[in-house]
Simulated assay, not measured.
Amino acid sequence: MHQSNRYLSLILLAGFACSQPQETTHSVEADSTASKYSHAPLVEHIYTADPSAHVFEGKIFIYPSHDTETEVAEDDMGSHFDMKDYHVFSMERPGGKVTDHGVALKLEDVPWAGRQLWAPDAAEKDGKYYLYFPAKDKQDIFKIGVAVSDQPEGPFKAEPEPIDGTFSMDPTAFQDGDDYYLLWGGIWGGQLQWYEDQKLVEGRNGPTEGLPAPDQKALMPYIAKLGDSMTDLAEKPKEMLILDESGEPIKAGDNARRFFEAAWMHKYNGKYYLSYSTGDTHFIAYAIGESPYGPFTYQGNVLDPVEGWTNHHSIVEFQGKWYLFYHDTQLSGKTPLRNIKMAELTYLPDGKIETVKPMK
């Protein structure tokens, strides 16, 4: 075969393969192929990160971001995380086959977006599925959008504009009975430090301009109840206060405990658990409150630092057991090229979470 024709055939074959559902198997136990890791990658044929897991239709569905090779230079604003689409994955049971349902949403199909489809999440209401996602708009400012589908795996159709009243990134959808909430926020590349009173301050740029002084209250994530349509907010967003053991807000200089990004909420024994990444100290920390609005009191760490700079997770119950989903860089050894994993989560009698160790 002529070399150019052979190359074209390989490209076409690869494209066909990526468009079809793909299945892999995995274990939630120790990874026997690499002894230093506690858990095996769920997906190996593409790079995935920031896994948001939910139980829909009796299966676990995972909504991660999709890492790809890029020529964009690394910087503290995360420009090298240059994602351009989303894949949705499902599994009928932990340890079983993981199905890649293919591309669920592409950057070019989001009318308002300019670049960087970062960590998404999903929700279901009345048989409709909603994919919440951050992207930078044409002015390079992060907004949160929503796309809708009739099935959990998509494909999803994006609304023409971002959700009014949202800003920053890392949206998380949380259902509490008949109520649905959206949480979001992230500093440095997430641009939360560029806002005051939920309004963008002109002229701020870079990862640290606008951050509070170390002895001041840290920036916190935001929450708002979703409207009946699930595509708008029903109220003005509220700050979610994270407090220390003495009831004081966590300080900006408390890097091992303060909020950085990746807020997630779940409910256990009537309590609301807010978990989040501490960013430059690389923990997944958690705090507990009596209401989805908080305040929340810091308790400790869900997950110790992983291999790679970033840390992002989700927590879900499935058939009476709880699972943590997270990512590391086992497959590539490179921070912008990550792979998702899962581990069983253990609650202690006092309601605290036993810290997961991603490395042996």
Rank of each mutant, 00 (worst) to 15 (best):
Phe283Asn: 04
Phe296Tyr: 15
Leu105Phe: 01
Phe260Thr: 14
Gly15Arg: 15
Pro120Asn: 05
Leu107Phe: 01
Thr346Phe: 01
Gln330Ser: 14
Asp164Trp: 03
Gly145Val: 12
Thr281Asp: 02
Gly247Ala: 02
Gln191Met: 10
Tyr273Phe: 03
Gly127Tyr: 06
Leu182Met: 13
Ala256Cys: 10
Glu307Tyr: 05
His66Leu: 15
Ala158Met: 07
Leu200Gln: 03
Ile288Leu: 10
Asn5Lys: 14
Thr70Cys: 07
Glu29Trp: 05
Pro358Gly: 05
Lys97Trp: 00
Lys267Thr: 11
Leu331Cys: 03
Ile223Cys: 03
Met342Pro: 08
Leu345Ile: 00
Asp121Val: 08
Thr355Arg: 00
Gly203His: 09
Pro21Gln: 04
Met77Lys: 13
Gly189Ala: 01
Tyr47Asn: 08
Ala30Lys: 13
Val302Thr: 06
Glu23Tyr: 04
Thr281Lys: 15
Phe318His: 10
Glu245Val: 08
Thr297Cys: 00
Tyr323Pro: 02
Asp31Asn: 06
Leu105Glu: 12
Ser229Leu: 03
Val316Glu: 13
Asp50Lys: 07
Ala30Pro: 09
Tyr326Ser: 06
Tyr347Ala: 00
Ser9Gly: 14
Val148Arg: 10
Met240Cys: 10
Ile187Pro: 09
Ser314Tyr: 05
Tyr273Ala: 12
Gly58Met: 06
Met230Leu: 02
Asp82Trp: 09
Ile353Tyr: 01
Gly165Thr: 06
Glu74Val: 13
Leu324Gln: 02
Pro21Asp: 01
Trp188Asp: 14
Lys225Trp: 08
Gln139Glu: 15
Thr172Met: 14
Val110Phe: 09
Phe325Thr: 10
Ser277Val: 01
Met342Phe: 05
Gly279Ile: 07
Gly102Leu: 04
Ala285Gly: 05
Ala213Arg: 14
Gly247Cys: 09
Glu153Phe: 06
Leu8Val: 11
Glu124Leu: 06
Met1Cys: 12
Arg204Asn: 03
Gly294Cys: 12
Pro212Met: 14
Phe296Asn: 11
Leu226His: 04
Asp350Ala: 10
Asp197Ile: 12
Gly58Trp: 00
Asp109Thr: 11
Gly210Asn: 05
Ser168Ile: 00
Lys271Asp: 04
Asn269Thr: 02
Met83Glu: 15
Leu12Trp: 00
Glu159Thr: 07
Gly206Leu: 13
Asp328Thr: 13
Gly177Ile: 07
Phe318Glu: 09
Ala113Gln: 06
Pro134Gln: 11
Pro111His: 05
Ile284Lys: 11
Glu29His: 15
Pro51Val: 11
Lys97Gln: 04
Met240Glu: 04
Ala263Glu: 11
Tyr63Gly: 02
Ser79Lys: 11
Ile242Gly: 10
Gly320Gln: 02
Val316Ile: 04
Lys360Tyr: 11
Pro120Glu: 05
Gly154Thr: 08
Ile11Val: 15
Leu274Pro: 02
Asp31Gln: 04
Tyr180Glu: 06
Ile340Thr: 14
Gly96His: 05
Asp280Leu: 15
